[in-house]
Computed example of a mutant assay.
Amino acid sequence: MARDIMPQASLSSEINIATRSLHTELNKLITARLPLALPPFASDPTLYTAGLLHFAHIFLTFESLWNDLVPTDVPGTASPPTSPLLSFLLVNPYSEPELFTSPPSPQTLEFLQNLRPKGMARSSRVKKDLQYLTGLHPTDFDVMLAQYPGEKVAAFCAHTRRSVGHKPHVLVAYAWCFYMAVFSGGRWIRGELVKAGPDFWTSGAETGSSEAAAPLTEKGLSLWSFPGRRDGEDIKEAFKERLLAAETLFSDDERVDVIEEAKTIFKLCAALVHELDEKLGTDFEQMKRVKVAPPHGHQPQRKNDKSEVVTGKGSQAARTWLQRPEVTGAAVALGCLACAVVLRLSL
Results as ranks from 00 to 15, higher is better:
A173P: 13
A293C: 11
K219E: 08
N92Y: 05
L244T: 13
L11G: 02
S225M: 04
L34N: 08
R319P: 00
W66G: 05
E14H: 07
M6A: 13
G208I: 11
S209C: 10
R162Q: 07
P93H: 08
G135M: 00
L221I: 02
P97Q: 02
S209K: 09
A293P: 05
L26N: 03
F178K: 07
D199I: 00
P80I: 07
P93C: 08
A246I: 07
S105I: 01
E237G: 04
D73P: 06
Q299I: 12
A330N: 08
P75T: 15
F88I: 10
Q286C: 13
A32K: 12
A333P: 04
G220W: 04
H54I: 13
K291M: 15
S163F: 01
C339L: 14
S79A: 14
H274I: 07
Y148M: 07
H169Y: 11
F284A: 15
S83E: 07
S163I: 03
S315W: 13
E247G: 04
T217N: 10
A18P: 00
L244P: 07
A121F: 06
D305S: 15
D73W: 05
M287I: 13
L272D: 11
S210Q: 10
F226S: 02
L337F: 13
P97H: 05
L216E: 14
R255Y: 05
K219N: 11
W176R: 06
F41K: 09
P215T: 13
L268T: 09
V143Y: 00
R324V: 09
P325L: 15
V153H: 08
R324Y: 06
P84S: 02
N16C: 12
A2C: 12
V170N: 14
S209P: 13
T82W: 02
G165S: 12
L112M: 09
V164Y: 06
P7W: 04
L26A: 08
T264W: 06
K219A: 12
V341W: 07
P7Q: 12
D231G: 03
L69E: 08
Q8Y: 07
S222N: 10
A205H: 09
V170T: 13
H166V: 10
R230P: 00
H298A: 09
D253Q: 14
D257K: 04
S12A: 12
I17K: 10
V182H: 06
L322A: 02
Y179F: 06
V342N: 09
M144K: 12
R230H: 09
A121D: 08
S251P: 01
W188H: 10
H54M: 15
S102F: 00
E192N: 11
P75S: 07
G220Y: 10
S10Q: 07
R162Y: 02
G228A: 05
